[in-house]
Design a protein around this nucleic acid. Structure first.
Lengths: 336, 336
DNA sequence: AAAATAGTTGGAAACGTTTGCCAATTAAGG
DNA sequence: CCTTAATTGGCAAACGTTTCCAACTATTTT
């Protein structure tokens, strides 16, 4: 790459002012006489001057860039969050460096380190638990981090999410209330605390309220994918299960289609409730009854919170963990 | 943000060498004695030194960052491409600045300008036509740009895609071959040349081969969304249409569900072929017969091509427009 | 009319790297 | 040992901004 042709210095020379003045007009500093400002602006337009953000970043120690780590961009849940993040980021003039982590601890660590090297002003983290290594990395920097739409085994990080436990409890209770004898808990990796902790607790709590014993054989663990759900249909039919709370929409959609393709009638012969209210729940037939969450808003609010932290607004320490309201919609995968 | 605490200079001092040497070991320059290298490496680890990528970018004029402009990250088509892009980007140690353009000319221009200001080493552009303003912008820079999975009214830009015209022709012909009297062309905005040009030509060409006249009333334009498809079902039923080639999967899924919900049996009473083979086609029931394209590969190859261009490898000018093979799968939305 | 004040501008030192050039050290050959 | 050629390492100049501080100008104030 050859030397940048028109720099702040070129503009300064052409407009017969100093670089300091050019810098001021570019950055909207009011201490510039209107005529001078206009003259500089004219030269800028004429020369098609484009300020170099890298140099600016070095001098000002702000890059107006935030890092976003996402497990899988093609997952509708995370994609929806990402949309909210991006929208408010661009509203606040931030750019986003987006990196897929594949939920792989090693890779996560690498991408975060890289993000930090790039001097991002902040990080939005979506994913599952954070490794000790990563924890140290976060601790060793004062770049603000917010966790979005996930629960992570590090309470020290600000986060924006819903109350997964309460939501799971309601979903399970809903199934129980309508007489299901046994409700399975079909989940993504139990290695993630959101599944083995929050949601499972909610599930158990609903069981307890209904005076049902927890039956270990009813928790069915998968990798959380559509394919996994589809494949599990057979096993679930064989087990004689008639109702299930599912922790993920892709998984639920797979299960539903697997069931249907195997001739099981949903909701008549099987009732199903899912967790995230992504597009998938409305795409399949029957449509899936689900916990609802304001996905876009979770992303948007996370980013908004991050902007505050980046501005050094450390007030409202109590607001650092934002729990948004969730809801519930009955659709076609449960009986009326 | 306070001054970075440990810099290359700190390391140099601690290791009793010059910054030049530290720079060399960090960048794997071979001209440094093994012991020296080891000593420096030790200090780096001990101090947890993290090279400042911004300073590096300024000095070296390379940011190892590429800009990606995407119309909508939640669209499964683009998300799938993005995944391929991200994977090979990280393979080549590039980061990605991802920006949603919302297919809005004004916003596109702004984000591209911003990307350029950030000194990205290259740009992957997904979207529709490029405005004159944007064309000038691309022309005024020598940052390489590649167009991925889209057709854009600027032949001068390298691109990676399939032959949309041929694919549309095959899809239409498929429907015609099995006796459909009239095949509708249900499309996203005709303002985009991919729809008004490539695909429509393919459609017409298939009609001509089958000695059918082109009927303007059979081209139905929408905004391309799921909702639009769903809403159009009524009109399509009223028009007595029995078969359609649809230019987008979201649109097709919406239409399919709209039809089904209105009591139309697909494929018995209506046959449907879609264009992109995204997850949506397999999620809905009946599953949608579709043109297939290697989505992930399109993204991956685009990025690979971009790396070559960024390396200044301008050989193979003929390879600058990569047309990948497409296919076709019969699924359940067409009769056997 | 001198002094104080406010408003504009310029000068120059950062910011943390990379890199071209040159000096010094080491190894090799005679 | 001396000469020559590698190899290694250091110096310092970029890179293109921001920003602190000083200086200058034009107003007010006294």
């Amino acid at each position: 790459m050859e030397k940048q042709s028109v720099t702040i210095y070129t503009v300064a020379r052409e407009a017969r002012v100093s670089m300091a003045t050019v810098s001021r007009v570019v950055n909207g500093n009011p201490n510039v006489k209107p005529e001078t400002r206009q003259k500089v602006l004219d030269v800028i337009k004429q020369l098609n001057y484009r300020p170099n953000a890298v140099a600016r970043g070095l001098a000002s120690k702000k890059t107006t860039t935030v890092g976003v780590v996402i497990p899988d961009i093609t997952d509708p849940y995370f994609a929806e969050l990402a949309l909210g993040i991006d929208d408010v980021a661009s509203m606040y003039k931030y750019n986003i460096i987006l990196t897929n982590s594949d939920s792989d601890d090693g890779k996560i660590f690498k991408v975060v380190r890289n993000l930090l090297a790039k001097q991002v002003d902040g990080i939005i983290f979506m994913g599952h638990d954070v490794s000790d290594e990563l924890k140290n990395e976060f601790a060793s920097t004062n770049t603000p981090v917010v966790v979005a739409g996930s629960v992570v085994n590090d309470d020290s990080l600000p986060s924006v999410r819903i109350d997964y436990q309460a939501a799971a409890k309601e979903a399970t209770a809903f199934l129980l209330k309508r007489g299901a004898q046994q409700v399975a808990y079909i989940t993504g990796p139990l290695q993630y605390s959101i599944n083995s902790g929050d949601r499972l607790s909610g599930y158990k709590s609903a069981l307890a309220d209904d005076n049902k014993d927890f039956d270990d054989s009813l928790v069915i663990e998968t990798d959380g994918s559509y394919q996994a759900g589809y494949a599990k249909a057979k096993e679930i039919i064989e087990k004689g299960i008639k109702a299930a709370y599912v922790t993920d929409d892709s998984l639920a959609a797979g299960l539903l289609n697997g069931l249907t393709d195997a001739g099981v009638k949903v909701p008549d012969d099987f009732e199903l409730v899912s967790s995230n209210d992504t597009k998938y729940t409305k795409l399949v037939r029957p449509m899936i009854t689900s916990i609802t969450q304001p996905l876009y808003d979770i992303g948007a609010i996370s980013m908004r919170l991050l902007t505050k932290l980046m501005d050094g607004d450390d007030s409202n320490d109590d607001e650092k963990n934002v729990i948004l309201d969730h809801g519930f919609v009955e659709r076609q995968s449960t009986r009326k």
